[in-house]
């Protein structure tokens, strides 16, 4: 009776050992696919939170098709920036060289613009450049057309006033980049910078997609 059962037990143990060996591949497959599942769940979680992405796209228009695309989640930039301590950048703040400011009080200047009504503040029309600085619907707009070259190039910058305020919220002679990024995250989809010239097209914009279009 005992011998009869011993044979069954031996066979079962061998079968179990073989099954265990074969299952190793399965374990590896499962462990390597686990991050994928985790990643997918993270993906949907961040999509629910409304992750904001900053995109930079540079396209060289000289026919060679050179392209640079950078996509950065704002939250990532907010977390990483304070860890960068180099030159004038410390704890997410950039120190402004006082001597280069020519005694211009940036804070007072921005406060004046913030409290003012929408309108065009600076308009310069020259032979080389046209410059226009305006406030439109809580955005600071800067428009420059360079006419000096054989072909026109134009730069358009659109910055939400909340972002400018956050940028200037640090102490004197400092720009708070982290606060500015945080304020930017609260904005809707917006095209921040657009540069077009004969050789390059540059676009910096903010949206909720993790891929550039």
């Amino acid at each position: 009776m005992l011998n009869k059962h011993r044979g069954h037990i031996t066979k079962a143990a061998l079968a179990a050992a073989t099954a265990l060996l074969f299952s190793q591949a399965g374990v590896v497959a499962q462990t390597t696919s686990a991050p994928a599942k985790a990643s997918q769940s993270t993906s949907s979680a961040t999509a629910e939170k409304g992750e904001r992405w900053l995109h930079v796209r540079v396209i060289c228009t000289d026919g060679r098709g050179d392209t640079v695309r950078v996509n950065v989640p704002l939250e990532l930039a907010e977390k990483v920036l304070p860890a960068v301590n180099h030159d004038r950048l410390h704890n997410g703040k950039v120190r402004i060289d006082d001597s280069r400011m020519d005694d211009v009080d940036l804070r007072a200047l921005m406060e004046a613009i913030r409290s003012a009504k929408d309108g065009e503040y600076v308009t310069v029309q020259g032979s080389d450049n046209d410059v226009r600085v305006a406030k439109e619907g809580n955005h600071l707009m800067i428009h420059v057309v360079d006419k000096s070259g054989p072909k026109k190039s134009q730069v358009e910058v659109k910055v939400p006033m909340k972002v400018v305020e956050a940028l200037l919220s640090a102490g004197k002679d400092e720009l708070d980049l982290v606060a500015a990024l945080h304020a930017l995250g609260a904005q809707g989809d917006v095209e921040l910078v657009s540069v077009k010239d004969s050789e390059n097209t540059v676009k910096v914009w903010l949206d909720s997609k993790n891929v550039a279009d």
């Binding site: 993270t42 961040t46 060679r64 050179d66 640079v68 695309r69 950078v70 989640p73 990532l76 860890a83």
Partner: peptide, 21 residues
């Protein structure tokens, strides 16, 4: 440390692409 700790929290993404001929 800050970068890789945070990157784990984000969905799959292409962060940088540089392409020429």
């Amino acid at each position: 440390h800050a970068l890789f700790k945070e990157l784990k929290k984000f969905p799959d993404a292409e962060f940088v692409e540089v392409k020429d001929d």
